[in-house]
Amino acid sequence: MLNLKLIGSILEQQIRFNDNKSLFYNGGKSALGPSPRTLCWLLEYRPQVAKTLERIFADGLLNHFTNKLAEQGISHFIQVNQFMQFTSKDKLQLAELYKDQFMRIWSLLQNEGAGEEVVQQFFQKHYQQLRTFLIQTNGEELFKKYTMDPHLFWVPCEQYSANLQVAWLGLDVEHLHPPVLDLGCGPQANLVQFLREKKIEAYGMDRHVEESEDRPFLRCMGWMEASFEQEQWGTIISHLAFSNHFTHHHLKADGEPEAYAQKYMELLRALKPGGSFFYAPSVAFIESFVDQLPQYFVRRTWITPTQQMTRITRLTK
């Protein structure tokens, strides 16, 4: 008997089957497609799959499944390349795309003559829609390298210990101005936990962090969707996060450097007088402008032979 749990299992193994395969490879036949198990269920257990889908539709579970798939999809895309950015609206759009696929699968199952070739065509159209979604949300430039190889390449995105971040950014922990915001704190929020253990009022924001009742100081959100009130924070910290993405958009042919510049200035205005924004790597192309403003003091420090960190302190209102 096909049940909802098994449907979820089939979906998960289908995602794993295409893991590490490029969605954009154009050097030959795409390696993406339905797994043998997926083909088996769709072709040999056609009536059972159709009835289970009808149950999902009738019980109002379609939104649950498609929203979960969209969350998993967004998470997977970001794990592949940390520079992909998605808004809440984008996530809803992806959920609608998956909803359409559920309906199309159900329609396909009604056709007794639909064999493996039809199923393969369905999946190829689905992957084309995913490619279109990614280009619409992130531009074409980001995916050019993915057209050259059938397998994905690694874009580093690591979590770092609190001690390493403190040393890298030269933080004088005992004299940080509260409250402290760690922008892009990571799923584990290591630095935030470290600071709170020292009785420092610290908060974290990250698109991967899990919000919970026992950790009300963490917020699951991307910085481009967040609003930062003026004079809200005593200290803002962003280790290999915001400035990395800012530089990426500055260099990317179809990036959004203006939007990042506006958010950068919003973060500076969110500092209380005497407060500081610590980040690495430095972004000299905008710091040279900020350095001319009388209300801010810019200081850069070499942390490796090729990398600098920046501390911007707000002097006045």
Rank of each mutant, 00 (worst) to 15 (best):
W154Q: 13
E71F: 02
A280N: 04
T66M: 03
K125P: 00
S88T: 13
D90W: 03
E256D: 05
L109M: 04
P216K: 03
G274C: 01
R131M: 09
Q85Y: 08
S107W: 03
Q82I: 06
P179M: 01
T247W: 03
G184W: 08
P281M: 03
E44H: 15
R314Q: 15
G73Y: 08
C157A: 13
I236W: 07
L4T: 10
S243W: 01
Q101R: 12
R55M: 13
L32C: 12
C220V: 06
Q79E: 11
A270M: 05
Y203V: 05
L268R: 02
T132L: 08
M84H: 11
E266Q: 13
G255C: 00
S88H: 14
G234A: 11
Q165R: 04
V119Q: 07
E197H: 15
Q159Y: 01
G139I: 08
S276T: 13
W302E: 12
C220F: 08
T310L: 11
V49Y: 00
M1T: 12
Q129W: 02
K68E: 12
I303W: 00
M309A: 13
P305W: 05
V118S: 11
Y146S: 15
Q308R: 09
G28M: 05
F102T: 05
E117I: 03
S35K: 07
F242W: 01
L69F: 02
P179I: 02
E287K: 04
W106F: 12
L62T: 07
D206M: 06
E225L: 07
P187T: 13
F285S: 07
F77H: 10
K144C: 00
D172V: 04
H151E: 13
A284K: 14
L53N: 11
Q101V: 00
H245S: 10
L181V: 04
W223Y: 15
N3H: 07
L240A: 15
D149W: 01
I105M: 10
L42Y: 04
L97A: 12
V118I: 13
A167V: 04
A241Q: 06
E12M: 03
V173S: 11
H64R: 14
L62N: 06
A241N: 12
A280I: 06
Q121I: 00
T87N: 03
K252S: 12
Y160A: 09
L109G: 03
H249T: 00
P47N: 05
D100P: 00
Y146Q: 15
E231Q: 14
A189N: 10
F65R: 01
A226M: 06
L169W: 02
L169S: 06
F277E: 04
P179H: 02
L11T: 12
W106D: 05
T306Y: 14
P34M: 02
I78N: 05
H250T: 08
Q128E: 13
Y127L: 01
E213Q: 10
S161F: 07
P34N: 02
A202K: 05
C157E: 11
E44A: 09
Q101C: 02
H249F: 05
W41V: 12
Q13I: 08
R55W: 09
W106T: 00
Q129D: 14
S161G: 15
L97N: 12
S107F: 02
M103Q: 14
H245Q: 09
Q159K: 03
D291M: 13
E231D: 14
N81D: 15
L94Y: 13
R16W: 04
G186M: 10
P273Y: 08
S9R: 10
I286A: 09
F285P: 00
G113M: 08
